[in-house]
Simulated scan of single mutants.
Amino acid sequence: MLSVYLRSLLRDEAAVDDLFQETMLVAWRRLDDCDLDRPFGPWLRGIASRLVKAHYRKQKSAPVQLHETVLAVVDRHFENITQMAGDTWDEKVAALHRCVDDLPEKQRGVIRERYFEGMPASQVACQCQISIEACKKRLQRGRAMLAECLKKKGVLDGGGVVT
């Protein structure tokens, strides 16, 4: 969830990875300050949001969506995800994994390597011994099949948005 939260605030994947690790280090150092009787997610997201703000200050550019009101709304949405019975993030991820497992082998392989292993499409194509165009087509078909499967499971709405 922390990684998803950071991705909602940052476009740069390297920055997401760096700030994820930095958030975990700060949290580890400040674990004694955490009230374990309260939810852990908001405390961790608070650390992450301060680090994101510092990141943008250092870059001398802050996107509009970092306004305090927007951060509060994003945080509230993440808190709602963890509190909704039958609609938790873990259940959505489990549904995604079941849908991936149900894909035909050709699509399952490229989807896993591209999105689960984080390989660039060119490397996936090379590993599968197919052209980059064939790899992109398999990924496209695989994503369409996943979207259809997730719609049937009630995880996506009609527009392909996670509900």
Rank of each mutant, 00 (worst) to 15 (best):
V4I: 10
Y5L: 02
R7Q: 11
R7F: 02
S8W: 01
L9Y: 01
L9S: 06
L10S: 02
A14G: 07
A14Y: 06
V16I: 04
D17V: 08
D17T: 09
D17A: 14
D18K: 11
D18M: 11
D18N: 10
E22F: 02
E22D: 09
M24K: 09
L31N: 13
D32M: 13
D32T: 14
D33K: 12
C34G: 07
D37P: 03
G41M: 13
P42A: 06
W43Y: 13
W43D: 07
R45W: 08
G46I: 04
R50D: 12
L51P: 00
V52G: 02
V52R: 02
Y56H: 15
R57K: 14
K58P: 06
K60T: 12
S61T: 12
S61K: 13
P63T: 00
P63E: 01
P63Q: 03
H67S: 14
H67E: 15
E68A: 13
T69F: 12
V70Q: 15
L71T: 01
A72P: 07
R76N: 14
F78N: 08
E79H: 09
Q83L: 13
A85I: 05
G86K: 06
G86N: 04
E91L: 06
A94R: 03
H97S: 09
H97P: 03
C99I: 00
V100N: 06
E113W: 13
F116I: 06
S122Y: 09
A125Q: 01
C126H: 09
Q127D: 11
E133L: 07
R138A: 03
Q140H: 11
R141C: 10
M145H: 10
L146V: 02
L150G: 06
K152H: 08
K153S: 10
G154Y: 01
G158C: 13
G159H: 14
G160T: 04
V161Y: 11
